[in-house]
Every structure is written in structure tokens, then in C-alpha cells.
Nucleic acid binder design. Structure first.
Length: 1036
RNA sequence: GGGCCCGUGGCUUAGUUUGGUUAGAGCGUCCGGCUGAUAACCGGGAGGUCUCGAGUUCAAAUCUCGGCGGGCCCA
């Protein structure tokens, strides 16, 4: 065993341990451990190129669980994964290459080169992140992460989509979706979640003139003037009440309950002149406000009388607007539904870049058309009020452009159909914490069909080939693709543009089929991770053996994202959910609870935490600070509590190794060999570490990491350091193979070895350092089993007694403080007044511990007779003695209190001065008798005797001298084992003469001579108003 | 508007599933102690209407209902 001489330095410890792992191939040995397979599936972080605190926390949680499971004898899967396709990469690469539009990509650089660049970039980013994950101690198979950009992964995706197609759950439809005009692609609803920002937009009230009703108008409200050229109808709720209001010489129609709200914005006077129901208005036709500006509308009007008419819709709300809802089926999902119902086309006069295509506004970007449209409406006298509003508006999650709604043909997975099955199958999933289950179901209830097609480049190609007649097929594998290929297209990898070259023959009409040039939503990539990472269906064996996953864990944003997407894809493919247990953890925020952003300057990088505090402390902190489902507020102040724990653990470790190394303690000493020598306190510590063992084990089974971390910290700080080390200090000083000392060594060794195993998943480096030093024949703590508590060594009664003992010691410290008696000064007697039997037992069993810690000669259960303080009872004295009352009171105060109280208690009366009083005339207050100090506790009162006898003083002065000599030894940098000779010249020499041997022993002095010395290190001290001159000299 | 979560000394939090000692810690603060674990360590004090109100109960931080405030998700 090496002796630890230096203080705790996380950097040194961790680097040494890492070198050791490297040199001895420990990580591979850990991974090679045999056991029952336990399938954990990694939620893939997106390859941004740098991990942040949240990603780090997430991986540290996973690593902790996996280490624990490994130690429990399982063989967990350790494959990490990454999300590598998709727009974020494309956007970055576009920036790098100075490309602005899809046209640029195709013309300036070419799809081929663009995709190569994306791939390079994704892999480069992934490798950077791998380095970072490794550096926070995550032991995973970093040399074989699952990568959705690989052919075999993409094939799993194709397989999945083909399954969906075969089950009729994969279809094409024209629908209104979010559309990013910069990226020129549709987006799925889950991509828009959380991507709303407050923006200022126009807010306009426009009146639509009704035909056939004189001077009467529908009043509508919108924040998107650019959608008005595409207006095809106005929707009202059939059951709402509407009013006709007179404004000057016109009549406008508005929902009754919105009347006040609307007119307070319009700042106009009005008179209500009529009432009607929404359904009364069905079919009323109006003049399109931009009929002249958009001639296409004239055709619509003539085509079908549903155009430019009032239609009925339950979706109309009374939240804002006027209750008359401008409807543009090409620009809104609900509008689109309504349009279908009334036979209106999804008129969407806009191109992929967000430029209007019809009307006089043709070629203008939508937002640029807004002011022109407002001007035109104003000119025509149809604008009732034009202002602005600040509201939430969706933005592209990658390029941050404002999104628009646009009706396009897209490919969908039919979630509507499988939703009940998802909810049903999810019932057997164990959600941690349980309430997330509800939140999840609520989320699933609200989702629509999954739009999986994207009009982009870097992604899994959509495996759909279509002929000019619109027949299409879905291809399920590369093999199938190759079989169907009729040209000589070469496909080096399953990406664009290579797959785009493949031509097939239509099984229905024989015409050439080309691939639909879309790629698949990147969320689909991760949704299939649990089987794609196993290379299903190419490798079915592994899948059949281990799927579904035992456990997944991600942040709370993933509840309606990855947790959901996985279940959806899996229910489509297998009719089953892909995981048995799912844990949700919180988000990382700064100390104030605000989100960390590079732009706001409050971001802390994981490497900052590693550099400042070290990996163990960072990891332990993130698991210890709060329950996993709550958010982690990261503060340097809080993390320092964990640093303190680590320092304390290190100090105990250092203390232990110092003496063990000195005595060449045999670390293979067995319990049976030493148990006869174990003191109560030794058995107590052994019991405690076993209890902690049990607590940590069950907390880990529940995935409640804070419940594991907190008992560990308490054990280290409270039990081990503040108590046990304090108790055994004097024992370590004994010379030779003293069995009492060996028992203490054994206990410390036992506790620290066990602690290092229990703590290994949470503090892998420090645990390894301690474990290795204490068990030299073992390779690594991470190759050991997680210990099972030894129930026969757990003694809860003893633990309880010790808890009381500590309280008694605390109470004595308190009493000493009141009596101003230093800890170093012994007292003659402690009396504990308590009827608690455990306290009594504690005093019997742990008397020696208590005596030493309290520095008392005697401690016992007993009773201390209270003194009473008698005070005149003025209320009674006044009426009784009238004018003499004051004299009586003075006499009571002057009287011999003890005698007076005794007389009253025995005879009922007492004579004070010339008066006779009885018990009514005084009030008695209990007080601590002189010569004692007391401290109240929850189990009774603890008394200390404060009388200092000559013997006590002699001991006290000896201890004062010992302390000074120790300090001088330290000043001289003497080693613990160095011997000295000592001379003491003081005027209280007689008082300490009997203590010479004791003092010599304590200070490792071969001789102590009372009298002047002439050699060595000299110092003059003032002790309790006395002078002591001390010489010490190191012996050769 | 709907679903879920959170609200505990100045700060960070445990405890809430399963109601039961005087609500437990750490940080900070004030006072004191210790001195061979020592650029450490320990004790004590002050500081709490457990967000508010009502209910259930012998008993509520904990269960129920309703406010208020904050967050996430969805409309």
C-alpha cells in the first residue's frame, strides 16, 4: 500500500487512474465482462460538434446506470449512437460553402459534393463529441457507435417504411404543413414544437362586402395579410350568436361575445341592430376584397358557389378575432379541412421560396407583400383598422426563418390509425417518474399524422419510386432496389444523389419509375434506433434475443419527441413498444434558473466543470443535487459541497494510509481473525457501511440517483470523518501490533473498500484510486461486483445508540460552551437525565467512546437535583401584607433560599426576617444547581459537572503542554514517527509532574525533563496566564 | 383553453408514492472550539405561517378541492 502524502487533487488522481486504465486495458476488460445481456438503447445526441452540460449530464446518468448494472452481473449493451442526418448539418455546410438556396447547392457545387461534405462534417463532429464523452469517464463502445448515415442503418429504415406501406400506414396526401421558405422543405409538427417566438406582425380588421345584403359586411381579422389573395371563404361557428352592428351608415357582422373586445380595438362607436346565429349565414356570398388584384379569384367565384361564401366550422373560437374567420385552404391546416368539406381547392399561390405566384403581388416574398396589400385594402375602403400585434409565431428550428403554412403533397405515417394501439401498448411501459406516463398519453392524444418527407439532400432517402402515371412502390432493402433496377446506375452508398439515378419499371404500367426526390425526417432516423442499431432485419438473432430495450433515459423535451417517435415507429413495424422502462430527466439551467446560452454568456461547458472541479465531483454533483426528474440548476457554489465531500474522503484515506503504511498493515486481514478485537464503534461503522450499501443498492434499482448519492455523502462526512476517525485517532498512535489498533485499521479498510465499490458508478476515478491502493491484488473496482450488504453485520440498535451518543456529545459541547470550559479540559462527571431506554443502553455500551469524546471521568444516567430560585410573588404579597409587602419581598430575597424553600416544602411556612410566609408568597423557578451546566435535548437533559479539581487541572495543563509540543513538532516538519527529547520550564511544573509519561507518549518524546533545556528548537508559550518555555530536539 | 410538473429559512434542496416524533441537510451569516487528516476539521446560535384558502382525519409539507405564482408540453 502506498502512503498518501499530498492533499486531494482531482486532476492528478484522475490522470493517474486514466493512465492505469489505459496501461492495463481495463475498459476493454470491463466491456468483456460476461453476464445476462441488458439492452440499453442510447438516445442519439445530434452531432453539433460540442457537448453541453445537458448532454454531459445525460451521458453521465447513462454511464452510472451501466456501470451499476455491470457490477450487478449484467452485461449491458454499451453502444452509443448519434443523430447525423438532417437540416442542421446542411445549414452549417451551406454556411461553410457560402450557399444560399437549394438552387445554389445543385448548380454551384452539386448534390454529390454537397452530400460528401455533409458526411465529412457529421463524422468530424461526432468524433469531437466522442472525445468529450470519453473525457467525462463514459465507458461506452466509442469505436462502434451506431450511425444512421450508414447503409445498414438506412436499410433498417427502408425496411420499416416498407412494413408501414404493406400495412397501409404510409400514404401520400396534399396537406397544409409548416414550410420553411429558406430550407424549402416541409417540417413535421414535432419539429415546430418549442420553436415559437414572440414577433411583431400586422393585425388588420378587414370588411368583406356581402352580396344581396345592402351595405352589410362581414368583419374579419388576420395577422397575415399575404394570405388574403388566397382567401376562399369565411367561416363562422354554427351555434354562436352573432350581431349586426351599425357603424355610421354600414352594418357589420361580428360574434356577440367578441363585440366589446373588437370595438375597443377599433375605437369606433356602434349600435346593435340585429341578432342571428352562425348557421343562419351559411351560403351568404361576399365580394372578395382583392378580386381586382387577383383575377384567379373571379374564376373561383364562378366555379362553385361555396367560393366566397360563409361556411360553418366548429373550429371557430371566441378567443380573438371577430368570430368570422378568414379561410384560405392553401395556407392553414384547419382551413384545408374546411375546404375539403365544402369542395374548395387548396389554393396555395406561393412557391417554395415563399414568393407569391398569382395576382399583382406575384414574385414578392410574402412578408414584403403585406404592406402593399394593406395599402390596397385601405385604398378600396375595406380596411377597418390596421395596427400591429406581438404574438407567438413558429420559426424554423435550424435556420431560424419564420415559417409559413403551405399545402403541398407530402408522405405521411398514419398515426391516427395506430394511436389506440400505441396507448394500449404503452400501458406496460414503466415510466420514471410515474406521472410522465400521463403527460405522454396526453401528448400522444394530440398528435396528428407524421409527415416524414423533406425536400432536402442530407438524409435517409425516401424509398419510393414513382412513374409518370402516379403509380408508386416502396422499396424495403438495397437488394430489392438492385433487383428492380433497369438501368446501370451505380449506388456506392444509399444517399442522394446516387439512389436518384436508379430507374425501375412500373409493375402496373411498365413505364420508368424514378425515385421521389425527398429524404426522410431526421426524427425518423432516431425513432428506429432500437432495431436499426442491431442491424435488424439483416441480423435478426441479436434482435430477437435482446429487444425490446430494458431502459432508455432522456431529457424532458424528448417525451413527445424521441420517446414518442420510437413507440410510433415500433408499433408500426412490430406492433410493440420498443422499451420496457423509460426515465425522464430534467434540463440544465444556470444558477439563477435561466437557460444557458452562448449568446447570453451564462453557458458553462462540461470541460470547464472538469477543469475546475474534476470528473468525479462533476459527476457526483449532477446525480446528487436533486431528483433526476427535476431540473439541475448548476452553480459553482453548490458543487463545492461535493468538493468538500471529496476532500474529506481523501483526508480520511490519507489518514488511513499514513498509519497503515507505517505499520505495514496486512490488507488481507479477515473479519473472522479480527472480530474478537473489534470495539463497539468498529462494529458500528461496519454496520453503517452495510446499511448504506443497502440504501444505495435499492436507490440504484429505482434509478433514483440522488437517493444513492446522498447516503454516500452522509456516510463519508458524518460517519466516517466527523465521527469514526475522531474516535480512532488515539488508537492509531499505539506502538507495535496492538490488536486494538489492528481492529481500527481493519474497520477503516473494510469501510473504505466497500465504499469504493458502492461509489464506483458515481465516482469512478476516486473509487478506483482507493480500491486499488487497498486491494493490490485486484485489477479494478470496475471489474468487481456491486456489494450486497451483509445483513448479519447490520446492527440497527447499535446505530441508533450511536446516534444518541453523538447527540450526547453535542449536548456536552453545548454545555461546555455555556460554562466556558474548553474541550481540552477534562470534567469529572456527566449525568444524563433521560427515561429513554436506548439512551441508557447507549451510555452502557458506548461509555468509553463517550468518556473519551466528552473528556469526562464519569458518564451515567441519573438525576441532578434542581436548585430553585425563589422570587417574591408580588401579586399575592401586596394584598396580604399591605404596607409591609416591600419589606417582605426584600426579606425573601435576602433569606437563605435553600432553608426557606425546605421549610415551606416540609412545614408549609417559613420565617423570613420578622415575617412568616407560605408557598403562595413565593414563586419557584427551577434552575441548574451551581457547579453544573446543562443542555436540553430531545431525549432529556445532559448535565456536566463544572467543578475543576486539582487532578483535573493537572490533566488539563498536561494537555495544554502536549498541544504546544505537537505544534512545535509540526513547525519543525517532523515526521509522525520521529522521536524527540523535550525540556519544559514552567511555574506549574508540580502540577504536571504526574503526567510526564502520558505527555511523553503523546508527543513521541523519549524523555521529558522538567527544567531548562539548552539545545534544539525553543519556544515560549503563555498558557492560562502561566508561562511555559519548551525545548524540543529531534533524536538521531 | 387543456394536460403534467414545481412552490419547504437569504440561497440550493431532502422528505410527498405509503399521512404519524419537535420538517432534515448543505451553503451563507453570527459566536465558539480543535490542532499530527491541518491550505483541513468540529460545535453552537439565529433564521421556517412547508405558496394561500377550504376540506377529509385523532393527526396533513404529505391526501382531496379551489385560488395564486413559476415551468414544460399541447391547443
Amino acid at each position: 500500500m502506498k502512503q498518501i502524502k499530498e492533499g486531494y487533487n482531482s486532476d492528478t488522481v484522475e490522470k493517474n487512474v486514466m493512465t492505469y486504465w489505459e496501461d492495463h486495458d481495463i475498459i476493454n476488460k470491463y466491456m468483456a465482462k460476461k453476464g445476462k445481456t441488458w439492452y440499453w438503447c442510447d438516445g442519439p445526441p445530434y452531432v453539433t460538434g460540442a457537448i453541453h452540460l445537458g448532454t454531459a449530464w445525460n451521458k453521465m446518468i447513462k454511464d452510472t446506470v451501466l456501470r451499476y448494472k455491470t457490477m450487478k452481473g449484467y452485461s449491458p449493451t454499451l453502444q452509443p449512437g448519434f443523430d447525423m442526418h438532417g437540416l442542421p448539418i446542411e445549414v452549417k455546410v451551406e454556411e461553410m460553402l457560402n450557399l444560399e438556396t437549394k438552387k445554389d447547392i445543385e448548380d454551384k457545387i452539386g448534390t454529390d459534393a454537397f452530400i460528401k461534405k455533409c458526411k465529412e462534417f457529421a463524422i468530424e463532429n461526432m468524433n469531437r463529441m466522442i472525445t468529450q464523452f470519453k473525457d467525462i469517464g463514459c465507458w461506452m463502445e466509442w469505436d462502434r457507435p451506431y450511425m444512421p448515415i450508414k447503409d445498414e442503418y438506412i436499410e433498417s429504415g427502408w425496411y420499416t417504411l416498407k412494413k408501414a406501406w404493406e400495412k397501409d400506414l404510409f400514404f401520400r396526401d396534399k396537406r397544409v404543413t409548416h414550410w420553411c421558405p429558406r430550407c424549402e422543405t416541409a417540417l413535421a409538427e414535432h419539429e415546430v414544437r418549442g420553436e415559437h417566438k414572440m414577433v411583431e406582425d400586422p393585425s388588420i380588421f378587414v370588411k368583406f362586402k356581402l352580396y344581396d345584403r345592402e351595405n352589410e359586411y362581414l368583419l374579419i381579422w388576420t395577422t397575415t395579410p399575404w394570405t388574403l389573395p388566397a382567401n376562399l371563404a369565411v367561416a363562422v361557428h354554427p351555434d354562436f350568436d352573432y350581431v349586426e352592428v351599425m357603424v355610421e351608415d354600414e352594418t357589420w357582422i361580428v360574434a356577440e361575445s367578441l363585440l366589446k373586445q373588437v370595438f375597443s380595438q377599433l375605437k369606433l362607436d356602434y349600435t346593435v341592430v340585429g341578432y342571428l346565429k352562425g348557421k343562419d349565414m351559411e351560403g351568404w356570398r361576399y365580394e372578395h376584397p382583392l378580386l381586382d388584384e387577383n383575377p384567379t379569384q373571379k374564376k373561383f367565384f364562378d366555379e362553385n358557389k361555396a367560393y366566397h361564401s360563409v361556411i360553418l366550422g366548429e373550429h371557430v373560437t371566441l378567443e380573438d378575432g371577430t368570430g368570422c374567420v378568414h379561410t384560405a385552404p392553401g395556407f392553414g391546416a384547419e382551413d384545408h379541412e374546411m375546404g375539403k368539406k365544402y369542395g374548395l381547392t387548396a389554393y396555395s399561390p406561393i412557391d417554395d421560396l415563399g414568393k407569391l405566384t398569382d395576382s399583382k403581388y406575384e414574385g414578392l416574398f410574402i412578408k414584403d407583400a403585406d404592406p402593399l396589400i394593406i395599402t390596397d385594402l385601405t385604398k378600396k375602403g375595406l380596411m377597418v383598422r390596421s395596427s400591429t400585434i406581438t404574438h407567438k409565431y413558429p420559426f424554423c428550428w435550424r435556420c431560424k426563418s419564420p415559417l409559413i403554412f403551405k399545402a403541398t403533397k407530402q408522405w405521411f405515417l398514419d398515426i391516427t390509425k395506430i394511436k389506440p394501439q400505441i396507448i394500449e401498448k404503452n400501458k406496460k411501459v414503466e415510466w420514471i417518474p410515474g406521472w410522465v406516463h400521463k403527460r405522454y398519453e396526453n401528448g400522444v392524444d394530440n398528435v396528428g399524422d407524421w409527415c416524414i418527407s423533406r425536400q432536402r439532400y442530407w438524409g435517409m432517402p425516401l424509398p419510393i419510386w414513382m412513374c409518370e402515371k402516379g403509380h408508386y412502390i416502396c422499396v424495403g432493402s438495397r437488394e430489392e432496389m438492385e433487383e428492380r433496377t433497369i438501368n446501370d446506375a451505380k449506388v456506392p452508398e444509399l444517399h442522394r444523389p446516387y439512389v436518384d439515378e436508379v430507374i425501375m419499371a412500373c409493375p402496373e404500367c411498365g413505364k420508368d419509375m424514378h425515385r421521389v426526390k425527398d429524404i426522410v425526417d431526421v426524427w425518423f432516423d432516431s425513432s428506429i434506433a432500437s432495431w436499426a442499431s442491431l442491424h435488424y432485419p439483416h441480423d435478426k438473432k441479436l434482435f430477437e434475443k435482446i429487444w425490446p430495450a430494458e431502459y432508455i433515459v432522456e431529457g424532458n423535451d424528448q417525451v413527445t419527441k424521441w420517446f414518442y417517435a420510437q413507440q410510433a415507429a415500433s408499433v408500426i413495424t412490430f406492433g410493440e413498444v420498443p422499451y420496457k422502462r423509460v426515465q425522464m430527466h430534467g434540463f440544465v439551467y444556470d444558477a439563477c434558473g435561466d437557460a444557458m446560452h452562448k449568446s447570453t454568456g451564462n453557458a458553462i461547458a462540461p470541460e470547464d466543470a472538469v477543469e475546475r472541479e474534476g470528473r468525479d465531483i462533476f459527476r457526483f454533483f449532477s446525480l446528487w443535487h436533486q431528483q433526476p426528474s427535476d431540473d439541475l440548476k448548476f452553480s459553482w457554489e453548490d458543487i463545492s459541497s461535493v468538493r468538500r465531500m471529496a476532500t474529506i474522503l481523501w483526508n480520511v484515506y490519507k489518514f488511513t494510509t499514513t498509519y497503515m503504511a507505517l505499520d505495514n498493515y496486512d490488507v488481507s486481514t479477515k473479519y473472522d481473525a479480527i472480530k474478537g478485537a473489534l470495539r463497539m464503534e468498529d462494529r458500528w461503522l461496519i454496520s453503517r457501511i452495510n446499511s448504506v450499501n443497502a440504501q444505495v443498492g435499492s436507490a440504484m434499482e429505482e434509478y433514483m440517483f440522488h437517493k444513492a448519492a446522498r447516503p454516500i455523502m452522509d456516510f463519508i462526512v458524518e460517519d466516517l470523518s466527523r465521527w469514526y476517525v475522531r474516535l480512532v485517532r488515539s488508537r492509531t498512535w499505539k506502538e507495535g501490533d496492538d490488536s486494538d489498533k489492528l481492529a481500527a485499521y481493519f474497520t477503516l479498510h473494510y469501510a473504505l473498500v466497500k465504499l469504493s465499490k458502492i461509489g464506483a458508478p458515481l465516482m469512478p476515478y476516486l473509487s478506483e484510486e482507493i480500491y486499488r491502493n487497498f486491494s493490490s491484488e485486484k485489477e479494478s473496482v470496475h471489474l468487481e461486483s456491486f456489494p450486497i450488504e451483509d445483513a448479519t453485520l447490520i446492527n440497527t440498535q447499535l446505530e441508533e445508540e450511536m446516534a444518541y451518543a453523538r447527540k450526547i456529545v453535542d449536548a456536552c459541547a453545548n454545555a461546555r460552551q455555556k460554562g466556558e470550559i474548553k474541550q481540552r479540559w477534562p470534567v469529572s462527571e456527566i449525568i444524563v437525565e433521560s427515561d429513554n431506554v436506548v439512551v441508557e443502553k447507549a451510555i452502557n455500551d458506548l461509555g468509553n467512546v463517550l468518556k473519551e469524546q466528552i473528556n469526562t471521568k464519569i458518564i451515567k444516567i441519573g438525576h441532578v437535583k434542581r436548585a430553585f430560585d425563589a422570587k417574591p410573588n408580588y401579586k399575592k404579597l401586596g394584598p396580604k401584607f399591605k404596607g409591609d409587602a416591600k419589606n417582605v419581598a426584600d426579606a425573601i430575597i435576602a433569606a437563605d433560599q435553600n432553608a426557606m424553600i425546605r421549610d415551606i416544602q416540609t412545614a408549609g411556612t417559613s420565617t423570613v426576617g420578622k415575617f412568616t410566609i407560605d408557598s403562595d408568597d413565593i414563586t419557584l423557578e427551577e434552575c441548574v444547581p451551581s457547579g453544573w451546566q446543562a443542555s436540553e435535548t430531545d431525549f432529556g437533559t445532559v448535565f456536566i459537572n463544572t467543578v475543576i479539581t486539582d487532578d483535573l487541572r493537572s490533566e488539563a495543563m498536561a494537555r495544554e503542554l502536549i498541544r504546544r509540543i505537537q505544534e512545535m513538532r509540526k513547525e519543525q516538519n517532523l515526521n509522525v514517527e520521529d522521536m524527540i527529547t523535550t525540556h519544559i520550564d514552567c511555574d506549574f511544573a508540580d502540577m504536571v509532574r504526574t503526567q510526564i509519561d502520558h505527555m511523553a507518549n503523546e508527543t513521541r518524546s523519549s524523555t521529558i525533563t522538567l527544567g531548562e533545556g539548552n539545545n534544539g528548537y525553543f519556544k515560549e508559550w503563555s498558557i492560562d496566564k502561566n508561562i511555559a518555555r519548551i525545548w524540543i530536539e529531534k533524536r538521531a
